[in-house]
């Protein structure tokens, strides 16, 4: 049986690792290559680097960083953030990343997912979905004009993911800053059809709060698509990862702060999970 994966996330700005809290306030936490190595040695199953570099000219730094990481790392890693074209993806993948994750560019032009899958293979394409709980099914239309036509059909198709008919999950772009009016469940299903190989699902409500993943969101997505799902946003304790795997049916758990400040080293988290019957790689 495939093991549940533990994935530390490193937010990168101009080649340095920073830590995201609610996507906006950042603290410095070190050198990417050293961090990557340390996590690998501690038993991380994969790594995710999210590039939050704003300026285009500094994106060259990212490619150099990816190469340095790939030279030393013998476990898989994903790079996301600001990938908008096939050339952006090619630069990252040919530098040694195993997967790229896309969000904004895919929401704006869903065919981008199909183009990436055709060019590099489904297994390279991670769709990042940043989602936020919304109250009031009727609000769904008002948010933005982006792909308004699809939004109508989303409303008709979706049952309530939480049991509360008023609650739904809205997809956000631009690092969690811009609402799109899209329903996260319908978007996940469309992405699967287009050729996404995996979903990286971040709850904007929980991100940085350390109160646990949004298990309702994860479980609703797991019921909807047959893709591997990485839970993200809200991890503060090993129990949260257990909940994401058992109740949320996630395949992998991504976290940052609990690892970065060494509060719960990876072996501690894995022992916790193993003791509760979750299969993890030692």
């Amino acid at each position: 049986m495939v093991a549940k994966r533990i994935i530390p996330c490193l937010d990168v700005d101009a080649g340095r690792v920073v830590k995201g809290i609610q996507f906006q306030h950042l603290k410095d936490a070190g050198d990417p290559v050293q961090q990557a190595r340390r996590y690998r040695d501690e038993g991380a199953d994969e790594l995710v680097f999210l590039d939050i570099t704003a300026s285009v000219e500094k994106r060259k730094t990212l490619v150099e960083m990816v190469q340095k990481v790939a030279r030393t790392l013998d476990i898989p890693f994903t790079v996301g953030g600001g990938i908008r074209t096939l050339d952006d993806a090619r630069a990252i993948l040919s530098s040694g990343a195993d997967k790229i994750s896309v969000n904004t560019a895919a929401v704006q032009r869903p065919e981008f997912i199909a183009e990436l899958a055709d060019m590099f293979g489904t297994q390279c394409v991670v769709l990042a979905i940043d989602a936020k709980r919304r109250l009031g099914r009727g609000n769904r239309r008002a948010e933005t004009g982006e792909r308004a036509a699809n939004v109508e059909s989303d409303i008709a198709r979706e049952a309530s993911p939480t049991g509360d008919p008023e609650v739904w999950f809205e997809v956000y772009t631009y690092g969690g800053r811009r609402p799109t009016g899209r329903d996260a469940l319908a978007w996940a299903a469309e992405a699967e059809r287009l050729g996404a190989g995996e979903l990286l699902v971040t709850s904007i409500d929980r991100d940085g709060t350390e109160t646990g993943y949004d298990v309702d969101l994860l479980a609703a997505l797991a019921a909807r698509v047959n893709l591997p799902i990485i839970a993200s946003g809200g991890c503060g304790r090993p129990e949260h990862i257990y909940e994401a795997f058992v109740r949320g049916r996630a395949d992998a758990a991504l976290a940052a702060s609990i690892f970065h400040f060494h509060r719960y080293p990876i072996p501690v988290v894995k022992r916790f999970l193993r003791q509760r019957g979750i299969e993890v790689r030692p």
Binding site: V2, R5, E198, N226, L227, P228, D251, A252, R281
Partner: peptide, 12 residues
Amino acid sequence: PDSVKIPHMGWN
């Protein structure tokens, strides 16, 4: 088989 998640992604 469709009874499991595809792609088979991860450590086994």
